[in-house]
Design a protein around this nucleic acid. Structure first.
Length: 758
DNA sequence: CTAGGGTTAG
């Protein structure tokens, strides 16, 4: 408890009180109680002059002339208050404070004005300090004081909040609606949602703001169901109609649920009550539709916003990215650069969204362009954005640039996430050793690894076959008080399974504290395929078919295991099962960039303008690598077909078409980089090793899970991914990398167009 | 005479 009642008795009534080293003289009259009628030399015109001033320099001039004419004094609080408010509105808190210091007296009015100035300008510490000083000077806080002080507590600590709450009760202002709403909000902002509810429940009467504060509290603490229940309770009990503020919170709650039907009803409510013209409401409706997957409706609302602000654009852009339509985000972004002014260009949130869109697409040239854009438009780069840029480079195949940026000292301070980004970057490029070294360096430098660090690290170890390191870091988790989650167990099972320790993997699954998910069983199933263990595979598959009956990959993997042990009857059973469930493999799609052109291929593509030449090239390549020892691997071909047909079907794989096109079009010195939406198939993986060798080309494939580097090193041995492709489930999936070639992404010439920012 | 609850990104 910060204040006691006796504070009021022991503080000086009159005389000099020190405020931060400044001397503040109080009126010597003990009966002083200014009312507007008692002000000296009060002039309405002066006050209007100050109020209407919106330029700092002009305000300073007015202020000094008021000073010389002796109008700003402690017994003219009204005018002084206006000056303080206006300095605060124009952001000059130092000037505001000096006026306050010269004029503040025992009346709470100016104290409230100054406290409000601090609170509204995000200076919670000063707000609270001034409040403490106010109490020490026996100036009584009132219903105009507490809302601001409580707001400050909301961005500081509950402890201070509780202390102020006790002041509120002691002074009797807990019966005031404004203070009540502020209390609910304070507990909510401190993350004490249930305390907020406790205050809320204790209120005899609640107005709309109180209800909204509580609804927002639930929404902000990821409890959207409770937020909506409360919203319905409000309508039932109070017959209140939501205002725009309440609507925004409700829309956000629905957005969290991602319920498309509810989204439409919230939109209808907003339209019915004429809120559709309020940018806040419109923005939250755009975000709500986007999060519930209804991008078409989101775009309609977005297009109707007359005065779009940064959040309008960001909501729509991130809506596209969230729904895996990153290239549409890019074209909207291009439009934004034309329509919106310089302010929009330098919005850091927009930059963050676009950088993550690019990471999703995996485009090397776009990565460079976006990075330049960020620098040229003077976006304020904080660590979050900087980390996103590192991540973008890593995910676009340019790990070296990411490393370089990470190692350079300027101009951004690294944080834990920076390390995580780099550890995962190394991991997805097959650099398990480097990832592990980075982890050790991270700990050495005093950064705390978290659950994300360990996920990336375990995955890196697993893909590079670093079993002992992997075990060590699973053990290390305890030391860093990170509780292993299901995803960490999945990594361990994956790691042990790949290395052939199938029994140990199963033992780990049995020891898991929570139920194993599809990721865990999927890792085991993959290990069974690699090591030909039918029995254990059946166990994994049985669980997987229950957990994810729609996931085609598991059926394929299991049938591959049966095929490897020649259990053809089982293979047929599985395929029939798939047929009856109408399960189809998702369409494969590969993309390659030639200069600034982006070319996309799907399986057996006949739409690409150069498809004839591409097929001829594939034929030539396959013939050549066969002579070098390449043997087509038809195990990934699903259908019951003859060997010859299998061979033919392998040649139509989208990644092969893209690589062949790359060999035709890309300068021999440059790497061939392909991005695809699924995981690379066994056969392509093996073929690319030979292609890299024979054609002396560096081939880089980014599949749904990670990068595969195919490159002949100086000793003649291949530096490439081990047999770590085609897990049945993408453990660390980037979902689907590219839009499938629809009319939006691919034009009549077969090319995908990114915007080329100029 | 001052006043409480709000949207994007992570």
């Amino acid at each position: 408890m910060m204040h006691r009642n006796n504070n009021l008795l022991c503080c000086p009534r009159n005389g000099i009180v020190s405020i931060f080293g400044l001397n503040l003289s109080f009126s010597s009259s003990t009966t002083f109680s200014p009312t507007p009628a008692s002000y000296n030399n009060y002039d309405d015109d002066d006050e209007d002059l100050v109020r209407s001033c919106d330029n700092l320099n002009v305000l300073k001039r007015i202020h000094s002339s008021l000073l010389t004419s002796g109008l700003i004094t402690y017994n003219n609080p009204h005018l002084a208050g206006q000056v303080i408010s206006n300095y605060s509105k124009l952001g000059d808190l130092i000037a505001a404070r000096s006026v306050f210091n010269a004029t503040a007296g025992p009346n709470s009015f100016l104290w409230n004005t100054m406290i409000r100035a601090y609170a509204n300008n995000h200076h919670p510490t000063q707000t609270l300090q001034l409040y403490l000083l106010m109490r020490r000077n026996c100036v009584g806080p009132n219903n105009y004081t507490f809302p601001f002080v409580l707001k400050a507590c909301g961005s500081r600590s509950v402890a201070e909040g509780r202390s102020v709450h006790s002041d509120v009760i002691r002074t009797g202002f807990d019966s005031h609606v404004f203070v009540q709403a502020a209390l609910v909000d304070m507990y909510a902002k401190c993350g004490q949602t249930d305390d907020a509810r406790w205050v809320f429940d204790g209120l005899p009467v609640r107005d709309l703001v109180c209800w909204t504060a509580m609804i927002t509290a639930y929404e902000q603490s990821d409890r959207p169901e409770e937020a909506l229940m409360l919203f319905h309770a409000m309508q039932a009990k109070e017959k209140f109609v939501a205002d725009s503020v309440a609507l925004v919170s409700v829309a956000s709650a629905v957005a969290q649920l991602g319920d498309a039907r509810m989204a439409r009803s919230v939109h209808a409510y907003a339209t019915r009550n004429n809120f559709v013209q309020d940018v806040f409401v419109d923005n939250s409706i755009v975000a709500m539709y986007a999060k519930s997957g209804n991008l078409e409706e989101a775009k309609l609302v977005f297009d109707q916003i007359k005065e779009k602000d940064g959040i309008s654009w960001n909501s729509m852009l991130s809506g596209y990215v969230q729904n895996g339509r990153a290239s549409e985000a890019l074209s909207l972004f291009e439009k934004m650069l034309v329509c919106a002014g310089a302010r929009a260009r330098s919005n850091p949130v927009t930059a963050l969204i676009m950088v993550s869109a690019c990471a999703y697409l995996g485009s090397p040239h776009l990565a460079k362009e976006l990075h330049h854009f960020v620098i040229n438009s003077r976006v304020a780069i904080d660590t979050t954005l900087w980390n996103a840029i590192l991540d973008m480079y890593a995910k676009c195949g340019n790990l070296d640039t990411a490393i370089q940026m990470f190692r350079s000292r300027l101009p951004i301070e690294r944080n834990g996430s920076s390390w995580n980004v780099m550890i995962s970057g190394y991991g997805m490029h097959g650099g398990g050793k480097e990832a592990f070294q980075l982890y050790e360096e991270m700990v050495e430098q005093g950064f705390d690894p978290n659950h994300i660090t360990f996920t990336s690290l375990l995955s890196a170890c697993s893909h590079s076959g670093l079993i002992e390191e992997g075990r060590k870091c699973f053990y290390d988790m305890k030391k860093h008080s990170v509780v292993p989650e299901v995803k960490h167990y999945a990594c361990m099972v994956d790691m042990l399974g790949r290395a052939g320790y199938l029994d140990e993997a199963l033992g780990l699954i049995n020891k898991m504290p929570s139920e194993p998910n599809d990721g865990v069983w999927g890792a085991l199933l993959l290990a069974c395929r690699i090591h030909g263990n039918t029995e254990l595979g059946e166990l994994a598959a049985k669980n997987l078919f229950q957990l994810e009956p729609e996931h085609t990959g598991y059926y394929v993997l299991m049938s591959n295991i049966y095929a490897a042990s020649s259990q053809w009857q089982e293979v047929r059973k599985l395929r029939q099962d798939m047929k009856s469930k109408r399960l189809k493999k998702p369409a494969a799609f590969s993309v390659i960039e030639v200069g600034k052109e982006v070319h996309g291929f799907h399986t057996a593509d006949h739409t690409h303008p150069h498809f004839t030449q591409v097929y001829v090239k594939v034929e030539t390549i396959v013939a050549e690598i066969k002579m070098a020892g390449y043997i087509p691997d038809g195990t990934c071909v699903l259908h019951d077909v003859e060997e010859e047909d299998k061979d033919h079907s392998l040649k139509t794989h989208s990644e092969k078409l893209a690589v062949a096109f790359g060999i035709m079009k890309i300068d021999p010195g440059l790497p061939i980089q392909v991005t695809m939406n699924l995981r690379i198939c066994n056969d392509c993986h093996s073929a690319f090793k030979f292609i890299s060798n024979i054609y002396q080309r560096k081939v880089i494939v980014r599949d749904a899970n990670r990068f595969h580097h195919f490159q002949e090193d100086r000793n003649g041995s291949l530096v490439s991914g081990k047999d770590d492709h085609q897990t049945s489930k993408d453990l660390f999936s980037w979902k689907c990398c590219y839009n499938l070639p629809g009319k939006d992404a691919k034009d009549s010439t077969g090319m995908i167009h990114y915007n080329a920012m100029s």
